[in-house]
Design a protein around this nucleic acid. Structure first.
Ligand SMILES: [Mn+2]
Ligand SMILES: [Mn+2]
Ligand SMILES: [Mn+2]
Ligand SMILES: [Mn+2]
Lengths: 237, 237
DNA sequence: CCTAGTATTTAGGTGTACCGAAAAAATGTG
DNA sequence: CACATTTTTTCGGTACACCTAAATACTAGG
């Protein structure tokens, strides 16, 4: 069953999964190549191997979709990655912009035993330092229904539940501006002619306005409504 | 400076170092091959590469010796390995026979930052769960002067300061027999005709005799004399 | 000091994961 | 609906870390 996949294989599968985690369309070869930082030709070859391994469905020139088995592998890797990120932040004092690269390597080196011991030590967290849900060992993903800040209309209010960890600079910028998970935001308006979004930020009574560039608004996810709920996972639930 | 060595390269260098850690003679190609579990021919090729990288001294048909640079790299890897083992035992509840394999992989995946944060969290330990000294970040090794149990004459007493972690089964056996680091032992006699060594074990007042097979006596290191001393390392010392 | 046996290296070959360039299929725009 | 553009695959090659089998160098016994 555990046929010992290579690091590359694991990263391909994880990347394919990640693409559809916050949207619907399946990933194409060139998108996969771009995200992995490899040539298109490399992807073509690897996708054929993944198909032979039964991890993806693919017909030539079509998009790449995970099989059930592929999804299972992907969730294992995502669980590892996010638990490791949580460990690095909670236990080793990393900041949230430093953890992604480190976890990207570690995820391929840890054993199942390590992961489960670590999860227990961390108290089986349901989300990672960026608000991404941590799949359970059984392969279920806490559903987080949130919307991209960019797609919210003026008037909408909510709290930030996720910030994409893809760009460390963006994370540093947001930390510097004192914007983090669980920050309360309200969309005020969009400045005309494709200008930035303006949001109001609640800060314990006080509030301030903040201009959000589109690239930032694309990386921030907001859950409408009131106090934090859902997304916690009782051990054994 | 950090030219990003491969995992294989790191393991070769570490294995070359380990061979001379508890004895003098430098390692030969076939010994290296046996320890790494690869063919002799693979070692020949790799040793040439290590030489090109400036990590070892070697002339054809000669033994393999680390250069200063090679020793530096080896100590870095040994530090990683032993700190990871300590982490696994102290923080994740591994037993001492389970940690070696896990650390063998993790040591190649962690960053310098990770290692130093981990060392600090663990309180900069001076030795690992098997009693092996943990080199400092600066590359100095706490000197532990101990002798193989097998080489002690009857009458000799001391405490166990190191047990080779090479054989997990042996470690499980010793744990089962309630023999661990810091156990007090006295060599009683050697049974005739190449029989086992008999040692007396102090156990809080009580004491019992124990037969030690040669393979075990080779793996256990004893420091003569009284209470535990040396081998602790003040932070910054 | 020669030679049989052992240790080591060289030669030729495998699998994995990449690459750039060339060929083939899909796409969309007039 | 043709055909130029873009996307994807195929093709030939590289680097790495292994392998087995063959060749070569050391070494110890006679
Ligand atoms: Mn990865
Ligand atoms: Mn994350
Ligand atoms: Mn290793
Ligand atoms: Mn150890």
């Amino acid at each position: 069953m555990k046929s010992q996949l290579s690091s590359s294989t694991e990263d391909y599968v994880k990347t394919i999964y990640a693409f559809t985690e916050w949207q619907d369309a399946p990933i194409t070869s060139s998108q996969l190549a771009a995200r992995l930082g490899v040539a298109n030709s490399s992807v073509s070859e690897m996708v054929r191997k993944l198909k032979d391994l039964g991890l993806v469905d693919h017909r030539p020139y079509g998009a790449v979709r995970l099989t059930e088995e592929g999804r299972r592998v992907a969730l294992t890797m995502v669980r590892r990655h996010r638990l490791l990120e949580t460990f690095l932040v909670n236990e080793l004092g990393y900041s949230w912009d430093e953890v992604h690269v480190e976890a990207e390597l570690l995820e391929h080196a840890v054993s199942d035993l390590f992961v489960e011991r670590l999860a227990a030590k961390l108290g089986n967290p349901a989300r990672d330092p960026h608000g991404d849900p941590i799949p359970t060992a059984e392969g279920t993903v806490p559903r987080i229904d949130a919307h991209r800040l960019r797609e919210l209309d003026p008037g909408h209010a909510g709290r930030i539940t996720r910030i994409s960890d893809e760009n460390p600079e963006l994370l540093r910028y947001l930390a510097h501006e004192r914007i983090s998970l669980d920050t309360e935001v309200t969309v005020v308006r969009r400045k005309p002619f494709g200008g930035p979004l303006v949001v109001r930020i609640d800060e314990g009574g006080a509030s301030r306005d903040f201009d959000v560039a589109d690239e930032v608004a694309d990386a921030v996810w907001v859950r409408s409504g009131q106090p934090h709920q859902g997304c916690t996972l009782e051990p054994g639930a």
